[in-house]
């Protein structure tokens, strides 16, 4: 992947496929690190599955829907000296509190750090593709934060779907303005 934001787009699709109703994408930056959290309340995975998805050579038919996404994220994190951690509760174990949390730490000053890239485009692509999910996006930078919560947008929009072109353009401009004011 050329940009970390593409890994984020890819990993968040797993949450969509896990039938999550709520998906949080949280980025926290310090001077030298970037921590990514993608948390959902989807169907979760069994312990065996969690071990499988992190190892690309352990792919079986059941893990194939996850494929190379997690290994690519792991590569992107580990090549900077960082790491990826996955916690998951399967709906078979706990149908109420099930879900998956993927945490990745990157060290920004490392030569092999992949730039974040066009994260705004990733957020709009996710919302456009799954407008019925409640998305929460947070990016905490040293100079301030950029945040978006589709629950708040829905309160104003009523029946108008989030994938309406005007709404997507509004979200894009809103996030862009957020970044302009932080930087």
């Amino acid at each position: 992947m050329k940009e970390l934001s593409l890994n984020i787009l890819d990993i968040a699709q797993n949450s969509v496929k896990a039938k999550a109703k709520n998906i949080l994408i949280k980025l926290t930056e310090t001077a030298d690190s970037l921590t990514l959290v993608i948390e959902d309340n989807g169907c979760g995975m069994s312990k065996e599955m969690v071990e499988n998805v992190i190892n690309p050579f352990c792919t079986t038919r059941t893990t194939r829907k996850v494929g190379l996404g997690i290994p690519l994220l792991k590569l992107a994190a580990e090549q900077t000296g960082g790491s990826v951690n996955i916690e998951s509760v399967s709906e078979q174990v706990d149908p109420v509190n099930c879900g998956t949390k993927v945490t990745a730490v990157f060290f920004k000053n490392h030569l092999d750090f992949t730039p974040l890239g066009d994260i705004v485009s990733t957020v709009t692509a996710l919302i456009q593709g799954s407008p019925d999910i409640d998305w929460r996006f947070e990016h905490h930078l040293e100079g301030g934060s950029v945040e978006l919560d589709t629950v708040e947008l829905r309160e104003v929009l009523g029946d108008v779907p989030l994938d309406t072109y005007e709404v997507i353009k509004w979200i894009e401009a809103y996030l862009q303005e957020g970044y302009d004011s932080v930087k």
């Binding site: 787009l9 699709q13 990733t122």
Partner: peptide, 16 residues
């Protein structure tokens, strides 16, 4: 197509 393969090959700008 927006799976890992599509995204890595440049599907995001195509979608946009």
């Amino acid at each position: 197509g927006m799976a890992t393969c599509g995204i890595a090959a440049g599907a995001r700008p195509v979608l946009n």
